[in-house]
Every structure is written in C-alpha cells, then in structure tokens.
Nucleic acid binder design. Structure first.
Length: 276
DNA sequence: TCAAGATGATCAG
DNA sequence: TGATCCTCTTGAT
C-alpha cells in the first residue's frame, strides 16, 4: 500500500536498521547490479521520504532513489539475511538486518542535485512540517480539473494516493468530479487539516483508518471488518456495498485510469449557481 | 493452471 | 485516453 505514510514508515525503518553504519548493497535479480557494485560497503547516513519517493543517503552525496509504483514492496527485516526469494531487485544488509526491494517502478543511484530536483517537483506533502498548502490551493482554485484528479496529482499533493483520495472526499462530502475552482477556501483548509491528521495516524499505525467513531462497526452494531489495505474505510473498494452513513449503494467509476469510489447521496454532484 | 487486478507513473498519439 | 512496465495475490476454470 504505497501511499505517503508507508514511505515515511519505511524511511524510518531503514534509518533504524542501516543508519550510521556501512551497508552491503546487492541486486540478486540483476537490474540494479552495476549501481549496487558502486556503493556496496558505503556508509549509510539514513533515509528520508518525500511524497511517494524514498531516498537512502550514502556517503559522498549519493542516494539510492526508490519509487514503489503500484506494486512495489520493500521489506525491512531484522536478523541475518536468508537466500533471496523471488525477484529481489535490491538487497541492503548488515550484521543485524536486511531489506529486500521487489517490483518497484524506480530504483536508481542519483546525486544530491537530482534528489533536490525530484523534491522540487512535488506539491504539498501533508506529512511534512514545511509543507505549503497555499501552493496547492493556488493550483486548485484556478483549475477546471476535478478535485479527484487534482488530489492524485503529485505536483499538487505529494503522497496522497487512491485510498486517501476516496476517503478524504467522502469525509468532506465532496463529489470527486467537482471542478477544483468551485471549492471554497474553507473546504480546502478543512480537507488539508484532515489529510494531515489521517496521514499522521497512518504513519503511527501503518493503517488507513478513516471512519469516524460514530460510524465504526462497533457503534453501528456491525461485525468488525478489515480489508486487505489494512484499515476501516467509508468507500474505498466498497463499490456495490451500502454506504456506512446513509445506506445507499457506493458507486465506482474510473478517472484517468484509476478507480474512483463515492457515495452519490453523501457526495452529491456539484451544480454551479449559474446552472442552478 | 492461468488470467485478472492492484494503493503509480510515464509515454505516445 | 490507452498502453506499458514491474510483481504478487486472488479467484475462476
């Protein structure tokens, strides 16, 4: 589930496991082998995330840049490393821990300049204290594009993925296809603060739980349910099921090739005043 | 045993 | 907008 909170957790795990010590770097699968040989045994200074990007910092201003994409996975495990299983693109290891990377969209060795360039292209990251939500609002308030589309645009919001998109729009009763420029500033501010809170919770717990206390299974007298994305949600991947709040059917559609989920009653279609 | 689908991003047209 | 890449899991046959 590679949304921003996952990457921040991974950065912290990597720093804990490898920071401040030399790290063995290899590529059992082979696609990162040439770069791995260049940095094998380098001193690892730590790791940090920016949106959905992960940077493992090595001595000499060198960084291993990882983007998990849709299906990538990075397992950080304590203990001695066993023989690699499956397609392990990158393996990091020392005496006490190892990490295996599989299926990532990107795994490159880059310099500080390129790292800065990647970070500069990212929009407001709800998980960073230096985030600038005003920049995101400037883009949204001037855009004809839908808010569902803008939320997934990493140059507007960094780290927000399909689950947080679906859930934040539900929590604020905003239809995903509503044009960005029709939102009120207050709505944006409330959504931003909520994103910060939800994603910080995701970092602490490793789960995406978005259902308010009054709508939880316990409160509604339903059996507990936990989907394979690891959390309790209102609409994400609940199409065809009943809305937890109003009971009407959760809808689905695709927008820019990605699945969209919403409740038609709780998130009514926006009509401008001119139209009525 | 095999095909489809998945929480992402990029490129061509 | 659709095709493509990457890997693994799930469900259908």
């Amino acid at each position: 589930m590679p949304e921003g909170h996952t990457l921040l957790r991974l950065a912290r795990q990597l720093t804990g496991a490898f920071g401040g010590r030399p790290v063995r770097v290899s590529s059992p699968q082979g696609r990162f082998a040439a770069d791995a040989a260049l940095v094998d045994g380098a001193l690892c200074l730590g790791a940090e995330s920016a949106g959905k990007h992960l940077f493992l910092e090595l001595d000499g201003d060198r960084f291993i840049h990882i983007h998990l994409g849709l299906i990538g996975k990075l397992d950080v495990v304590s203990g001695p490393a066993p023989a690699p299983v499956g397609q392990v693109r990158l393996r990091l290891q020392n005496d006490t821990a190892y990490a295996d990377l599989r299926g990532a969209t990107q795994c490159d060795l880059i310099g500080a300049e390129r790292r800065d360039q990647i970070e500069a292209q990212l929009g407001a990251d709800p998980l960073r204290t230096d985030a600038d939500p005003d920049r995101a609002w400037a883009r949204i308030s001037a855009s004809k594009r839908s808010i569902g589309d803008l939320l997934m645009d990493q140059s507007v919001f960094a780290g927000v993925g399909n689950v947080y998109r679906a859930e934040i729009l539900f929590r604020h009763r905003i239809h995903p296809l509503r044009p960005g420029r029709t939102l009120r500033h207050g709505q944006f501010q409330a959504m931003w603060l909520d994103l910060v809170e939800l994603m910080e919770y995701g970092v602490r717990t490793g789960r995406i739980d978005t259902v308010r206390p009054e709508h939880t299974p316990e409160a509604m007298g339903r059996p507990p349910r936990e989907d394979d994305h690891g959390g309790e949600v209102y609409v994400y991947r609940r199409h065809g099921q009943d809305c937890l709040v109003c009971g009407s059917r959760v809808r689905t559609d695709t927008l820019a090739g990605r699945n969209l989920f919403w409740c038609a009653r709780c998130q009514p279609v926006f009509r401008s005043r001119a139209v009525g």
